[in-house]
Each structure stands twice: as C-alpha cells, then as structure tokens.
C-alpha cells in the first residue's frame, strides 16, 4: 500500500477485515443497573466500543433559570475518557463532544415523556470507555436503557447503529478503520416500535439508491438491537415472575 492509498477494507471473499459479512454488526453486549449510585445505568459494547451511561433525576434543577414550566429539561453529556483512544484524549469537552451531546439529546427527546415532570431536570451522562467507531450510536443505545432502568416514562426505547460505505460496499456497524478509510459514514438511531428515526447524520457521499438501501439495513439491524435491549431489561425483571 502506498501513501495516500485507500487500504483494502473488503477482502476478496466479500468479508470485512474482522471477518464480518457486510450486513453483520459486531458482537453486542448489554447490561443494566451497573452503577449503584445512579438512578439508572447501563453498559453497552459493540465490539471494542464500550460505553457506560448513567441517569440522575428527574431532580430539582441546579440553576433555576434553566427550568421549563411545562416539561423537564434533558441534559446530556457525552464524554470520551482520556484512556478511550489510542492517543490520550484531553478530558476537557471538545467541540465534537459538545455537538454529539446535543445530537444524542435530540435523539432521546422525542421518546422521553418530559411533560410528566415539569420544572425538573434529567441528567444523562454518557462515558465512552473505549472508542472503536460508532460511539454516538452505542451511547444512544446505552442511554435509552439507562433511562428505562431509572423508571423515567418513555414512549419507546431508542437504538442506534452506524452504516458505512467502504470500497463501494454498504456495511453495517462500521468500526474505527472503516470509518477512517471508508467513503461514507451514516449513524442512525430509531425508536423501532414507533417507527421514528430520531438521529440521522451522513458524512461522505451516498447515491440516492445507496441511501435507501442503507436506511433499510439500519432498520433491519436496529430491530435486532432493540430486541436485545428488551431482552436485557426482561432479564433484570425475570425474578419478578418466579413465585
């Protein structure tokens, strides 16, 4: 490979560098209630991307000027731990983290029934422990699990996944390398039961047909992710059904 050349990300047999088929997500692991002090918490990993989410509230707002008279405010802090990347990341919030906090907040606002808790504040902390691509979508997935764990009223769970285009092939759940050298990166989050797309970004170029196909792939994967989220929550309450 020469300098400036795109590496071969799809092998000759059609599989990706880590052996996955284009439509396969990485191995997904989910846990809820992992933190004792938080009102709700969740840990989600997509392959090597590992994210911890914690929810506090609804609680009395710290700054009174922030309150809204008719609903709760949702505060989201997406943060990457200094040790989450190959090279140390400064712990100060970067421009990217501030933007992603906003994007994740907007991905969750349509499902959280904030009107039930007027004049309060819901704090959501998303800590990326290890970054390997798809941190914002993993963050959204963890955050919605943590909100359900906290007992905050929600219309549906939100799940996220990033679709990418590498070497001209659409692939599901791209990792760091595919994100870096690929042609396009499209993170998406959906409330699958409601059929709502709550987060959609696109970095790179997709044709109209590719976009439609990518959305279809995202929808298919997210239904599976959502099923896993439900399974994780069901496991937490399984003891309830045992007499």
């Amino acid at each position: 490979m020469k300098y400036g050349e795109t590496p071969q990300l799809i092998k000759e047999d059609g599989t990706r560098l880590d052996g996955r088929k284009p439509e396969d997500p990485r191995p997904i692991h989910m846990e809820v209630g992992v933190l004792e002090n938080a009102d709700g918490s969740a840990y989600v990993s997509f392959g090597k991307t590992r994210v911890l989410a914690a929810v506090y509230g609804p609680r009395e707002p710290i700054q009174k000027y922030m309150v809204l008279p008719d609903r709760a405010i949702l505060r989201v802090r997406y943060h990457m731990a200094p040790f989450s990347t190959g090279e140390r990341k400064s712990p100060a919030p970067s421009r990217r983290e501030i933007e992603l906090s906003k994007v994740i907040r907007e991905a969750l606002e349509p499902v959280v029934i904030t009107e039930l808790y007027p004049r309060t504040m819901i704090d959501l902390f998303i800590e990326v422990l290890q970054a390997d691509g798809g941190t914002r979508t993993t963050g959204v997935t963890a955050a919605s699990l943590a909100l359900a764990d906290a007992g905050i009223a929600m219309r549906d769970l939100v799940s996220g996944v990033a679709i990418g285009k590498v070497n001209g092939v659409l692939v599901v759940d791209i990792d760091e390398v595919e994100d870096m050298y690929g042609e396009a990166d499209m993170p998406a989050a959906m409330a699958t039961k409601l059929g709502l797309v709550t987060l959609l970004q696109l970095n790179g170029v997709l044709t109209k047909e590719e976009f439609v196909q990518a959305m279809e792939m995202a929808k298919k994967t997210l239904e599976k992710v959502s099923e896993m989220q439900r399974k994780t929550l069901l496991e937490k309450y399984s003891s309830v059904l045992q007499v």
């Binding site: 499902v111 359900a148 009223a153 929600m154 219309r155 549906d156 769970l157 409330a191 039961k193 409601l194 439900r230 929550l233 069901l234 309450y237 399984s238 309830v240 059904l241």
Partner: peptide
C-alpha cells in the same frame, strides 16, 4: 403474568 417494557 408477563413483563412489559416502554413501547409495548
């Protein structure tokens, strides 16, 4: 008895 989750 069944467990239901948000959105069910």
């Amino acid at each position: 008895k069944t467990i239901v989750l948000p959105g069910d």
